[in-house]
Structures are given as C-alpha cells and as structure tokens.
C-alpha cells in the first residue's frame, strides 16, 4: 500500500513554470486520469514525480533511491521506443530488471509475472515474434505488458492507450481500474475524455502547469471546464450505462 504524495512541485523551463505548484495525494485504490490540452505539462509532471527532471518541491517517489523507486513505481513514457528486434517475451521480461539484484537470472516468479502480463494484454500468440516487426498498436500493448510485469504498487503511464483499437483501449482501462481496485495506485495521462469519464475514479485537469480541477469525473468534466480549458463543447449525460461524455465541437 503506497500512496503518491506531491507537495508544491514546481518545474521551470527558463523563467516559465511548466509545472506550477502541484500538491496532491493519490491513495492506493484510486485509478486517476490526468487530462489536459497539449503542452499543459503532463509529461513534465510525470518526469518530475519520478525525479527524472530538475524540480523544486517534493515528490514521495523522487526521494527514493533509484533501485527502491524502480520497485515502487513503473512508468511507461509517451515515446514508444524499442531499439532492437528482441522477442516480445524478452522485452516484457525487461520489466523484471528491478527485481533481479546483482545479475541474478530470471526465476520462476519472474516468468510467472511475464506470463500474467502477456495474458492481460492478449499477447501470448506473439511472444516469440520480434517486437519491432509488430504494428504500432501491438507494440504499445507489448510496452504496457512490460509496465505490468514490473508489478509495482504505483503505476504511471503517459498516454498508454493512444493508438490502440477500441477493444484494447477498453481492456487496458479496465485492467488499470482493476489493478487500482486491488490496492495499487494508478495515474495515467489520457486524451480520450470519454474513456477517462468511464474508467477513472478520479480526474486531474491540468492547464498551463496547474491542476485546476481535481475530483470524480462528473465534477471535473463540466461544460464550463471544457470550454475554458479545451475550448470545446460537449454532450454530458448520466445514463443507465453510467456517466457518458462526448466532445461535440470547438467552441472558440
């Protein structure tokens, strides 16, 4: 059970604050979506949370040693990078590196973790294929499997479902929700507000480096917030299928 705590986190690029005084706590059990327009500072916020970025203020993760942090939090960066034609299974096994101290070889536990991650992402049929030969969406699923195989109490993912087909978008969001429900902490940056509305228990709305709304989807995805931050109008409805959100048109 590990919460993520940020207090007065600030990142400057030149004189401009890219992340501006962010303080919040994400408790275990929450699946939190980070939404905001391009350039709002979402990726920079992730990097600052993880301590990869020069910053002021505090993040509970950035305080840990590199090895401890790797066992506490897994991160999927937005840039999908697979440098070599390694087999899918080998690539997912890279997620076990933090658990393999001092050059130890992967054991039964590691293989089990990899196998679970491959099942969740529907990849068992691909496991011997070179990852670089797969399609973009399939590669994304492989990288999500790597993230899951790390089996950390905190999961951070930067636009994990961009480029996936609808079925895999939904399975991935459901998986993140169920991981959170099992007592872990999940924070994902998303651009699909409809999926964010349905599968996140809490949303953070970020604009110009500040968190300007924080709460359950129905309190964050309001007509006023959407017009002010994204410049769009939206159809918002509470139906028997749950809370629905559909962007309509640019309102500026």
């Amino acid at each position: 059970m590990t919460a993520l705590t940020l207090s007065h986190l600030i990142v400057h690029r030149g004189v401009c604050p890219v992340v501006d005084d962010v303080s919040l706590t994400i408790a275990p059990g929450e699946s939190v979506g980070l939404i905001g327009p391009n350039g709002a500072g979402k990726t920079t916020l992730f990097r600052a949370i993880l301590g990869l970025q020069a910053r002021q203020g505090e993040s509970s993760l950035a305080k840990l040693s590199a090895r401890e942090r790797a066992k506490t939090a897994a991160w999927m960066p937005q840039t999908r990078e697979i440098a070599w034609p390694v087999a899918v299974e080998t690539l997912v096994m890279l997620g076990r590196i933090p658990h393999l101290a001092g050059g130890r070889r992967p054991g039964a536990e590691d293989h089990a973790a990899v196998s679970r991650a491959l099942s969740v992402m529907d990849l068992h049929g691909f496991k011997d294929r070179p990852a670089t030969e797969l399609s973009g969406g399939e590669q994304t699923r492989v990288l999500i499997a790597r993230l899951l195989a790390q089996e950390t109490p905190i999961i951070l993912a930067d636009e994990p479902i961009a480029g996936l087909d609808p079925a895999h978008q939904i399975t991935t969001m459901q998986k993140f929700a169920s991981i959170a429900a099992s007592g872990k902490t999940v924070l994902t940056a998303l651009h699909d507000l409809g999926l964010a509305a349905r599968y996140c228990s809490r949303l953070l709305l970020m604009d110009k480096g500040r968190i300007i709304a924080d709460g359950p989807p129905k309190d964050v995805l309001t007509v006023a917030n959407m017009r002010e931050v994204f410049g769009i109008s939206a159809h918002i409805a509470q139906t028997e299928d749950g809370f629905l959100f559909l962007p309509l048109e640019v309102a500026r």
């Binding site: 991160w75 890279l94 050059g103």
Partner: peptide, 21 residues
C-alpha cells in the same frame, strides 16, 4: 553494463525508471 544496456532497449527514460543510473 550488460543489464543497463538491456534496459536501454526501451529508451533512456524507461531505463532510468527501471533503476538504471
């Protein structure tokens, strides 16, 4: 460097969050 090089397959940021200095 072997293990660090393996991790770098996923890029510098990913490798760093997997505990590679």
């Amino acid at each position: 460097t072997a293990r660090g090089l393996d991790a770098l397959t996923l890029g510098q940021d990913a490798a760093e969050t997997m505990g590679i200095h």
